[in-house]
Write a protein that binds this DNA or RNA. Sequence first.
DNA 1: CTCTATGCAAAAACTTTGCAGGGAT
DNA 2: ATCCCTGCAAAGTTTTTGCATAGAG
Lengths: 123, 123
Amino acid sequence: MNIEKFIKNKKIKLTDARISILEKLFAAHRPLSYNDIKEHISMDKATFYRNIIKFQEEGLVSSFESNDKNRYFEITKSPHPHFICTSCNIIECVQEPVVFDLDGYQIEDIILKGKCESCVNVK
Amino acid sequence: MNIEKFIKNKKIKLTDARISILEKLFAAHRPLSYNDIKEHISMDKATFYRNIIKFQEEGLVSSFESNDKNRYFEITKSPHPHFICTSCNIIECVQEPVVFDLDGYQIEDIILKGKCESCVNVK
DNA sequence: CTCTATGCAAAAACTTTGCAGGGAT
DNA sequence: ATCCCTGCAAAGTTTTTGCATAGAG
């Protein structure tokens, strides 16, 4: 993915910090928290969070809260459910499309919580 | 609801603090955060959170994180989805039962995020 | 050149922990 | 009488803000 092209036409400047955040999010195939990537990026946390805010304003990035007190970020894709394991806290993107029909409500994200395959048999 | 009966057989003592937390959660028909009820209970926040941990260990109370950085608590009922509005942060219990069938996974909670009826038309 | 982005440090918001005294069984 | 529970204060976590400097367009 070409980050430069991805950011083009958005009203934000192209900086090294922004490129490295977006590259990490593109490379991961699951949502990441600041903790997940802080070892692999060099910017200050203030820069990270300020850029995430910009990305979200532009609709490039989406986020949600997990059980582990971290906020998780991913490149905005067509809406898909997320599964959070309440034992090991792993987060997975669910591929099966889900249709919901709540009258008058507009669904933007679906989060499923429970036990993943590895944890369901452990107790 | 009789709190004394509710707590009986659980390995925790019946105290004023615990009774008042559980009464508030029973009376509300939606999940509550510490912020929601701190004006109406007299205990210290440490006591509140420690008791919530006990309740969760006993399976009496369930919780999840919202967008507003608060954790929300409710009496454990038969699993039902929650709707969180990404505009006004209101949380509602969804009555329509939802069936999910993810092979090998055990679903415990479903959180839907989006725009509620009031916010969907505002932009 | 101008306006936005960055780093550092401090603050903010929510939750947890240590400790000494009080209370339920 | 014995543990468990409580309040207070302090510490811990994650995210945000203020301010002066650096950098993109």
